[in-house]
Amino acid sequence: MTATGEPILRLRDLRVTFQTPAGPARAVRGVDLDVRAGESVAVVGESGSGKSVSMLATLGLLHNAEVSGSVKWGDTELVGASTDTLRSVRGRRIAMVFQDPMTSLNPVLTIGKQMSLVMKAHQPNLGKKELRTKAVDLLNRLAIPQADRRIDAYPHELSGGMRQRVMIAMAISNDPEVLIADEPTTALDVTVQAQIMELLLKLRNEHNLALVLITHDLGVVAGSADRVAVMYAGRIVERAPVLGLFASPGHPYTSALLDCLPRLDRRHDVVSSIGGTPPNPADLPEGCPFAPRCPKAIDACRSDEPNLVRIGTSDVACSVVAAGAAVGEPV
């Protein structure tokens, strides 16, 4: 399913810098991303690639960080926006689900109470009874059995999968238009992961929700994303429709990453891997940050950092690939 129309969330040249004892760490270095209603966009990368940080910055959830660039929700600018503006968007228009439901839920409040609080924050007119009915209804929609009883349970009385469902129920309780899910299934078992992903995609279809999926797992991406943005060292190195990305990865990092993925359906004769380690955001190399690990790197890669260039249906930030494709034009 491919969504068309105007993007509802627009990131332009988003940058995030943290001050660390080792100097400024440039965690996100100019990210452009559009999210449209009803589509699911995956932001993929390894730890430290800036995928989570860029989304936290989008929602103004980063403290002690310098954020610049632009994040537009419709006509509203979110970077540098007032707390009130952010609050009216956060949770109401754009909701977020985190990796670990246990630490995101308050252990001393019942599920129902927490859901009520979240709903009341944006819908203050709802009465006690209505809140409860709505909460039970939400839990039912997320296939939580015996929802009318579970609503009075405390987080520790639920399994990990159940807790993540509750988190998702809370996230969608104010009918947001964008749901950002940060590694929503990483802490869960694979059969539970299947349940949760199925749910998220169902919600997207039923509510025309835009889904931003932050993940390190390209397997999950293959089954659930329409478009993919691959991040490395704080930048998007490739942006492509999911079929194109897997069929013909443009950036050498994307292909290397795909090559070293273990696959369930085959036993590799040679397990390939990417040598070296991702660079330290406080000490980035000159030029393309992937160049030190890149099999295709040429001298130019070590001096100039490439920008995203349209090649076919993909945008790729690689000097070598851009030089090889005559159709390359800047985006």
């Binding site: 299947a194 397997g219 293959a222 999911v242 079929l243 897997f246 069929a247 795909l258």
Partner: peptide, 11 residues
Amino acid sequence: SAVPIPDPTIE
């Protein structure tokens, strides 16, 4: 069946 395969056409 729950393990995702990094290939959208198969998935």
